[in-house]
Computed example of a mutant assay.
Amino acid sequence: MTDTVESAIKRATLLLQSSSDSAKLDAQVLLLDVLQKPHSYLFSWPEKLLSAAQLQQFDEHCQRRLNGEPVAHITGLREFWSLPLQVNSSTLIPRPDTEILVEYALSLSLPMAAKVLDLGTGTGAIALALASEMPLWQITGVDRVADAITLANTNKQRLGFINVGFVQSDWFSQVDAQQFDLIVSNPPYIEYDDIHLSQGDVRFEPLSALVADDDGMADIKYIITQARDFLTSNGYLLIEHGYQQRTKVHSFFAQMAYTNILTVKDLANNDRVTLAQWPG
């Protein structure tokens, strides 16, 4: 027994409805990974029969998704800023909301050859997105996890960007004494007792990349404090944070003598990124 492309997607959609809010899309992405075809193939060849091997791999993919494993971990890929990035369990899966940080960073008035630092780079998503848009920027991404740096370098090599480099560093610890026009970060900002940590895809992601002490504020405060030694005069710091942390982030930026503090909302109209300038 075998399935057509169309019938396989219908069957998988029904199967995944109990474990996913995007069952049909998940089924489509998983099948395209098996077929190694673009999305248009699903509509061009709906009656195409799957081979026994393809059907077996698709069923295995669906079972993993049924168990809650993220689609990105199953396929090994996630698109961010239209860039196909390899992902694995050593880092967070890049999320669409983080593109807001990239979008706003690109809107800032910065030198043509700006020096940029991405703290906690993970897959390299933010650094690589900025590199793709600003080839003259000199971008450094750091992460304390060696496997994350390996992954970020793999993505860099696949995409062919030459204006970005990655260094293993616990925040600023291995960053040379230099100043940056822009520092960006998507640090851990979730509280340890947040109920969402036991739900959905985040169950399969590294806890150390998600949670922080001090009600999720510890790493944010550390970055805001230390960044003052690494920013140029009027340089910018952009930090992604939880939607309920706006007031605390604003307050700490002000306490640390930053100016022009502004919060940007994400795609769901939640407070998501706060930026400020260091007067120097």
Rank of each mutant, 00 (worst) to 15 (best):
F80W: 11
Q57T: 15
D59C: 07
N88E: 04
E47N: 12
L31N: 10
L50S: 03
W81K: 00
T91Y: 00
E69H: 05
N88L: 02
P84G: 07
K37I: 04
A52M: 03
L110C: 09
L85Y: 10
A105Q: 04
G68Y: 06
P70H: 06
Q86N: 13
F58Y: 13
L49P: 04
L83I: 06
M112R: 12
V102C: 03
L31I: 08
L77I: 14
H73V: 03
S51F: 11
I93G: 00
Y41K: 13
L85I: 05
V87E: 08
V29R: 15
W45V: 01
Q54S: 08
Q63R: 12
L85A: 04
Q63N: 13
Q63E: 13
W45P: 00
T91H: 01
V71E: 02
L108R: 15
S89F: 02
L49T: 12
P111L: 08
L92F: 08
T98K: 09
G68W: 07
S44E: 06
E99K: 06
W81F: 10
L55R: 13
L31H: 11
L50F: 07
P46S: 08
A105N: 05
K37Y: 03
S109D: 15
S109G: 09
L50Q: 00
L106D: 08
L30Q: 03
V102G: 02
W81L: 01
L85K: 10
V29A: 11
V34I: 11
C62H: 01
V29H: 14
R95W: 12
L66M: 08
Q57V: 10
M112I: 01
R78Y: 09
L35F: 03
D33H: 15
W45T: 04
Q54L: 04
L42V: 01
F43N: 14
S107N: 11
Y41F: 15
N88H: 02
I93A: 00
G68A: 03
E99F: 05
L85G: 03
R64V: 01
E60W: 00
S51Q: 06
W45N: 14
L85F: 10
Q56A: 14
L42G: 03
I74V: 02
L92E: 10
R64K: 13
E60M: 12
L32E: 03
I93Y: 05
S89D: 15
S82G: 07
R64G: 09
V71W: 07
M112C: 02
Q54V: 03
D97T: 04
L49H: 11
S109L: 12
D59G: 15
M112Q: 14
D59N: 15
Y104S: 02
S40P: 01
E99M: 06
L83C: 09
